[in-house]
């Protein structure tokens, strides 16, 4: 029979997003709350001055959350439901499965993303080119995040272990680094530590496009090189080094 890759990708989107949202609408609220909660805290604490940064920060966090959510979802499907074993033994490849599940996480986040985009248009000032660069930075962040999420999920043996991973990743990539606040707020030498997180580079790019600070051309290029390099490495790990087939 003819295999339709579109159907294979759609299956992941249906199972992990659309059917879940149709059958349990409460989860839409859940996805909305996490990024908005920090956005609210940062906005109120800064008397509104950091609202534009917090909005872009919430978008970055949403991209990273897609990866951590994917890691938890796939770990649950693999270890508790044995779904991965059924998929491994089917004509679906690991790459198709990753793509489908990654899109499902975006679909899952559509209400949050839509709300943040509205806030972005209202409160964040940027050029068309700046908006495009922000989109690229967010897309790259999403790509490394879901790659990392998939890679880790294939090594987990139970959901508790999976929670352990996401519990580490989430604060290290979104809460602690300068995602919701400008990097200039971090004093030296701690600022150097923040560069250990790939989201710092994404934030630098995004924040420079909304006028929070000036990022020189050289630093702009370096941020992109680092961000893309990390994405390529994590993408390679996800596609080539994940434990799709058990050993």
């Amino acid at each position: 029979m003819k295999r339709r890759i579109g159907s294979q990708i759609m299956a992941s989107i249906l199972v992990n997003a659309i059917y879940a949202m149709i059958n349990y609408p409460i989860i839409l609220l859940n996805t909305l709350l996490a990024p908005l909660a920090i956005l609210a805290v940062v906005t109120f604490a800064s008397h509104g001055t950091l609202l534009p940064v917090a909005v872009t920060g919430a978008l970055i966090m949403n991209m990273v959350s897609s990866g951590t959510s994917m890691q938890q979802d796939l770990s649950h499907l693999k270890n508790d439901m044995r779904l991965q074993d059924m998929i491994v033994s089917s004509p679906t490849t690991s790459t198709i499965y990753i793509v489908g599940m990654a899109i499902s996480e975006i679909v899952y986040s559509i209400p949050t993303i839509a709300f943040l985009i509205v806030l972005h248009f209202i409160f964040v000032k940027t050029t068309i080119l700046g908006g495009f660069i922000i989109f690229l930075a967010l897309a790259t962040t999403f790509t490394f995040s879901v790659s990392l999420g998939f890679f880790l999920s294939t090594f987990t043996s139970d959901i508790i272990q999976s929670w352990g991973f996401s519990g580490i990743i989430s604060p290290l990539l979104t809460t602690i680094p300068p995602v919701y606040y400008p990097i200039t707020y971090i004093p030296y030498p701690y600022r150097y530590l923040s560069y250990l997180s790939p989201t710092t580079y994404a934030s630098e790019i995004v924040q420079s496009q909304i006028g929070v600070f000036h990022l020189g051309f050289q630093n702009f290029v370096i941020s992109w090189v680092v961000l893309i390099s990390i994405t390529v490495v994590l993408g390679y790990l996800a596609v080539r080094r994940s434990r799709w087939r058990e050993v």
Binding site: M1, K2, R3, R4, I5, S7, Q8, M10, A11, S12, L14, V15, Y19, A20, N23, Y24, L77, M81, L83, M86, I87, S90, P91, T92
Partner: peptide
Amino acid sequence: LPWLTPLQTVRSYLMWRGYS
């Protein structure tokens, strides 16, 4: 999967196998 119906369960598996 507990959040699916039987029809959704079978259907999604078939779609993973490449059925329309």
